[in-house]
Amino acid sequence: MTEPKIQLTDDEWREKLSAAEFAVLRRAGTERPFTGEYTDTKTPGVYECRACGAELFRSTEKFESHCGWPSFFDPKDSEAVILRRDDILGMTRVEVLCANCHSHLGHVFEGEGYPTPTDQRYCINSVSLRLVPSDPT
C-alpha cells in the first residue's frame, strides 16, 4: 500500500477530529447501526472524507440496503479508496480506506444480491463522511 498523501500524528488528528470521528476514522471503529446522520439521506451531492475532504462517493451511487449504515455501490472512482483485507473479527472482510489519508471508512461486501450495477455494498460509517449538497441551480 502506498503512503497517504496526508500524514498527521495522532495528536494532530485528535485536534482536527471529534472523539467519535477519531475512533472510527483513525482507529477503525464502527458507529452503531441506524444512528448515523447519512443512513437514510437522499440529498443529492458528494460525500467527502470527513478527515481530509477527498471526494469519495456520490449520491447517485447511494442505495437503500437497510443494513444500518449508508450504502454505496461504487466509489467516486477506482482511486478514491483503497481496499485492504481485514481479518480482525475472525472473519475475512474487505476494509475501505480513504486513498488520500488512509482513514477507515467501513467495509465492502460482494454477492449479497442487491440490484445494483456492481453487486457490491460499500457499507460506510456516516461519521467518516461529510455530505456536500449539490447546487440546486
Rank of each mutant, 00 (worst) to 15 (best):
V94F: 07
E64K: 15
Y122M: 08
P115W: 15
D10P: 03
G90P: 06
R121E: 11
S65E: 06
A54H: 10
F57N: 05
P75R: 05
C101V: 03
K5H: 12
A20P: 00
C101A: 06
L17Y: 06
K5D: 12
F34V: 10
V127C: 01
R26I: 07
E12D: 14
L89M: 09
E37I: 11
P115D: 09
K62L: 01
K16F: 07
R58Q: 08
D40V: 10
T116F: 14
I88Y: 04
L17I: 14
L25M: 12
V81A: 03
N125K: 02
Q120D: 02
E21K: 00
A51P: 01
D74W: 11
E12N: 10
L8E: 09
T41S: 15
G29V: 09
D87N: 15
K76C: 03
F63D: 04
D119M: 14
R32V: 08
A28K: 15
A23R: 12
P117A: 09
V46P: 00
C98S: 10
D74I: 04
E79M: 11
R93W: 07
T2W: 05
N100I: 02
G36W: 02
E64N: 11
R32G: 07
N125D: 10
D87P: 14
R84W: 01
K5N: 08
C101G: 02
P136V: 15
K62G: 02
P70R: 02
F72G: 01
L25W: 01
F72V: 04
G106A: 15
L83S: 08
L83Y: 07
R58K: 12
G45Q: 13
R50Q: 09
F109L: 08
W69D: 01
T116Y: 11
R50F: 00
L83A: 10
C101M: 04
N125P: 02
P136A: 08
W13A: 04
V108T: 04
M1Y: 13
G111M: 15
E48M: 05
P115F: 13
P75T: 07
V46Y: 05
S103I: 12
A20N: 13
A23Y: 11
A99K: 01
H107C: 11
R93L: 07
V46M: 09
F109T: 04
S128L: 05
L25Y: 01
L83M: 08
L25C: 03
S65P: 10
R85I: 08
Q7I: 10
A28I: 06
K5C: 07
C49Q: 06
L129Q: 06
G29P: 06
R14W: 04
I88V: 13
N100D: 11
L17M: 03
V132Q: 14
N125L: 09
A28N: 14
D135K: 13
Y47A: 03
